[in-house]
Amino acid sequence: MDLQAVVQLIGNVGFPIALSLMLLQTILVKFNKQMDGLEKRLAQLDKTMNLILRTFHQNASKSAFRQDQKEED
């Protein structure tokens, strides 16, 4: 926000309301940045969990195959 826009905002709505609006804008910008960071972390967590599940299922199927072979012997 440039100085002329701030002065015009104060003239239109008054100083306390103008200050509140500027603080609200600042808070919303920071909140959106944090939400973007959380979305990226959640996406990475999802990929990691899928990888762990795939590995677990592969190991479980290999283990079951080995047990079947032992039982046949």
Rank of each mutant, 00 (worst) to 15 (best):
A18K: 00
K40C: 03
M49G: 13
R66I: 07
K30A: 02
Q4P: 01
L19T: 10
L23G: 11
D2F: 00
E72A: 14
G11I: 01
F15C: 00
S20M: 05
L53A: 09
L42D: 05
L24N: 15
E71W: 12
L9A: 02
Q34E: 03
Q69Y: 05
L3Q: 09
M1L: 02
L51P: 12
I17P: 07
A64H: 13
L38P: 05
K30L: 01
V29Q: 01
Q8S: 04
L21A: 15
I27S: 12
N32P: 07
R66C: 11
L42E: 03
A43N: 08
A60V: 03
I27N: 08
L3A: 07
L45M: 05
S61R: 05
L21C: 14
D2C: 01
V13M: 00
V7W: 07
T26F: 13
L24D: 13
T55H: 09
Q25H: 15
Q25S: 15
R41D: 11
I52V: 11
G37Y: 02
D46K: 13
K40T: 08
M1E: 02
L38G: 00
D36H: 07
M1I: 06
L23T: 14
E72Y: 14
F65I: 09
S63L: 08
P16K: 01
F56R: 08
D68Q: 10
N59T: 05
E39S: 12
K62I: 02
Q8H: 10
V29I: 03
Q25Y: 08
G37R: 05
N59C: 02
F15V: 03
K40L: 05
D2G: 03
N12A: 08
M22T: 11
L23R: 15
G14V: 00
H57N: 06
Q8M: 06
A60I: 04
F15K: 14
L21S: 12
E39N: 09
L45R: 04
V7S: 15
L42V: 07
Q67W: 13
G11A: 02
S61F: 01
G14T: 02
R66A: 10
L19D: 12
Q25N: 14
A5F: 04
L28M: 08
E72H: 15
G37W: 00
M22H: 12
V13S: 00
D73H: 15
Q69L: 09
F56Y: 03
F15I: 05
I17F: 10
Q25A: 15
L45T: 12
Q25W: 13
S20F: 04
Q58F: 07
A60E: 00
L3C: 06
